[in-house]
Amino acid sequence: MPYEVRAAVAAEKGAPVEVRTIVVPDPGPGEVVVAVQACGVCHTDLHYREGVIGDGFPYLLGHEAAGTIDAVGDGVTDLKPGDYVVLAWRAPCGSCRSCRRGRPWYCFDSRTAGRPMTLTDGTPLANALGIGAFAERTLVAAGQAVKIDPAARPEAAGLIGCGVMAGYGAAVHTGGVGRGDSVAVIGCGGVGDAAIAGACLNGAMKVIAVDVDDKKLDRAERFGATHTVNSRGTDPVEAVLALTDGHGVDVAIDAVGRPETFRQAFYMRDHAGLLVQVGVPAPEARVELPLLDVFSRGGAIKSSWYGDCLPSRDFPFLIDQYLYGLLDLNAFVSETIALDQVEAAFAKMRRGEVLRSVVVL
C-alpha cells in the first residue's frame, strides 16, 4: 500500500519550506522505497526553493541522504529490505552513448523513479535532483540506492551523496591530483573542504585554502589545508604565487562559481596547470579572458559534474576511508535538526554559520 509520510516541501518560489503530508507509491519495476534516516541540507536545495534551478513547483527537497531499503519493486535483485544505502542523483543507464563509450560518470540518461510522489490531493511533486529525501520515505530508482557498510553513521554517510562527493571528485577524478602536487581551493564550504580532503588523501604536497572568512579558513585546516589565504584584503593570486615560488599551483579548484573566482583560479595556476570548475555558477554569470592568455598559459580548464563520480564505485570507497579514520565525514556535520527546521537551516547557510545541517528522521 502507498505510504503517507511527513516531508519538507517548497510549495512556490521563494516561499518558506513547509512540512506537509505526502503520498509515496509502492515501488514499481526497478524502483525501491527508502526509509530515510538522515539527509543533509545542501545549497542546491536552497537553489530549488528560490527558483534558481527550475520552476517545477512544488518541490520535494533533500538529496544528501542515507537510510534503509523498505520495499523493492519487480526486477530488483541486488537490493533487499533492510539494506543500508546512500542515495545518488546519478544512476548510469548503461546504454546511452556515454555509457557505451565507458564513461558512465557522464551518463546522459540517468535513472530516476518513473512515478511521482504527490501531495495528499494528488498534486505531483518534483524531486530535488531526482531524489526528494527531506521525507520519512522516498521513492527512487534502484540504481540510485548504493549499498554501504552499515557501521557508518547516517548523519555523516549521507553527505557523500552530493557535496562531499562533488568536492572529493573535483580534486581526485577531474583534477587528477597526485603525490607531490600543489593545489589551491577557492571557497571553503562543504564542496571546497571535501576537495581539500581529497587532495590531501591523494598525496598533494601543498594545499592552499582561499576564502573571505577566517572561520572557514580555520576549518579548512582541519581537512588538511597546509596554507590559508583570506582574499578579502589580499590578492589571492599574488598570495598563491608567493606560496609557490612564483610558479602557481598544479591544480586550482574553483568551488564558488563566480566570474571573479574563476579568473583567480585561472591565473593562480602554474604554466600548463589545470583549472577545475566545480562551484555552480548563476545562469547570468559571464567570464572574459584574453584569448592570448588562454593560449599561452596552456594547461586545461575542466568542469566537474558531481566530481565525475561513479556512485557504485566511489560511495563504498569513501565510506571505507571514513571508517578507517582517513576521511573525517563527521567534521562536515555542523548540527543535526528536525524536519521542521529546514527553513532555519537555510538561514544559517546564508549567513555562513554551518558547513552542513543534517535532518535526522
Rank of each mutant, 00 (worst) to 15 (best):
G40L: 08
C42W: 09
H43L: 06
D45T: 02
Y48C: 06
Y48S: 05
R49L: 15
G51I: 11
V52G: 00
I53V: 15
P58T: 02
P58D: 02
P58G: 03
L60E: 09
L60C: 10
L61C: 11
G62K: 00
H63D: 02
E64F: 10
A65N: 08
A65H: 06
A66I: 01
G67R: 01
G67T: 07
V72Q: 03
G73W: 04
G73F: 02
G73A: 12
D74P: 07
D74V: 14
G75L: 05
G75T: 01
T77W: 01
L79D: 11
K80T: 14
P81V: 03
G82H: 10
D83K: 07
Y84E: 06
Y84K: 13
A88N: 03
R90W: 09
A91L: 08
P92Q: 06
P92N: 05
S95M: 08
C96A: 08
S98G: 00
S98K: 09
S98I: 04
R100N: 09
G102V: 11
G102N: 11
G102I: 13
W105L: 01
W105V: 07
Y106T: 13
F108S: 15
S110V: 08
R111M: 14
R111L: 15
A113D: 00
G114K: 14
M117W: 00
L119S: 09
D121Q: 02
T123P: 12
T123C: 11
T123M: 11
P124R: 02
P124L: 05
L125H: 04
A126W: 02
